[in-house]
Amino acid sequence: MKFDNPEDIIQLTPLWEGERFPNGRPKVPSDILRRMRKITLEEAWGPLWNRGYTNQFEGDLKIVHPDRVMVGRAVTAVMVPKRPDLHDALMKYGHEQEGRRGFFNQWVIDSIGEDDVVVVDLYDKIYQGTYVGGNLSTAIAARTKQGGAVIWGGIRDYQQVVHIDGINVYYRGSDPTAIADCTMTGMNVPARIGKAVCLPGDIVLGSPTGVIFIPPHLAELTVVQAEKSQVRDVFGFIRLKEGVYTTAQIDAAWNVELWEDFLRWFNGADEAAEYRHLTWERELEEARKLPGGPGGPGGDVRL
């Protein structure tokens, strides 16, 4: 049994076709992470739900900084209650065969880098289940720059953690005890966080309502669809205030004339400047194919 095994990680994430870290973990581009920070959790949820990914969200968590959005690539860990023979064998293997130092939680945090988020299934253990405190949270902040942690378990040193810049932590509860009587059985393996499943390399989007785990092969699509929804809303609000369209027209499938009005606005309006990397040929072409053709009922096509 190996921790953080590249062959296992690649096997778990076959739909990812992009760059990978040396350990095989999918490396979603930094630009996608940057854009992800500007979308809402609900905007990310829709594309996943519509594609059958219905176990990606968990909201029953406390948050160190509820007003901050957290985005990063998942580094996962799975813990179980301590059984002495298993615990000793895995600790010995990690120390002697893989050169790791300290306790299991330190192994994981020593492996993370910029824009990572530590995602830990600690089986809802809080008493002696405090995965991070002041020191390890400081290490996470230093290594990830703007990442953090999602812990289905506990934390300690809350009064220190809350003052650490560049980190957010989602957790189940706090306790003054140190972590004990638990064993890590997997690193960068599938992890369960409440009702949600997270794989290594998933994009973690944390909001005031909870966390969602976005498969890497759907990250760009999720961002693009969210951005398209945002800019169409901006256009719709403007035209509604101007009295050009009714709410029924804006909320229904757009006809070709409405799409063409939108595209003229999109290509020239200051409000649309940050969205001009988006393209709309597919939507316009699909609208033209629907009954009635130009001027008839249009289509609003999901990506």
Score class of each variant (00 low, 15 high):
G148I: 10
I179S: 12
M91E: 09
Y158V: 12
W152T: 09
V80L: 13
W152C: 14
G99P: 11
P84V: 13
M91H: 08
G133R: 06
P81H: 00
Y158L: 14
G129P: 11
E96Q: 15
G194S: 08
L205W: 10
Y123D: 12
C182A: 15
D110C: 04
R172G: 13
K125E: 07
A196L: 10
F213I: 04
V189M: 13
D157T: 03
T222C: 01
M184C: 07
N105S: 09
T144N: 02
E114W: 01
K82G: 11
V108K: 07
I140Q: 02
K82P: 01
R192D: 09
G173W: 12
V108Q: 10
V162L: 05
D85K: 02
Q106E: 14
T130M: 13
P215E: 02
Y93L: 13
M184H: 03
D124I: 01
S137M: 07
D110T: 03
L218C: 07
I212E: 04
R192W: 02
G186Y: 12
T144S: 13
V117Q: 09
E98D: 06
G147I: 05
T138G: 14
Y171G: 02
R156H: 11
Y171C: 04
Q160G: 03
V162M: 11
Q160M: 13
I126C: 03
G148D: 14
P176E: 15
I212C: 01
I151T: 06
D124L: 08
V132Q: 10
A142T: 09
A196V: 09
G133M: 10
E220I: 06
I109Y: 03
V169C: 12
R172D: 11
G186F: 08
T138K: 08
G194L: 08
K145G: 03
G99F: 05
Q106T: 12
L86G: 02
I179E: 13
A219C: 04
D85F: 11
H217L: 05
L122K: 09
Y127E: 15
R143W: 04
G129K: 01
T185F: 05
Y171H: 10
R101D: 12
N105L: 12
G166C: 09
G153S: 07
Y170L: 03
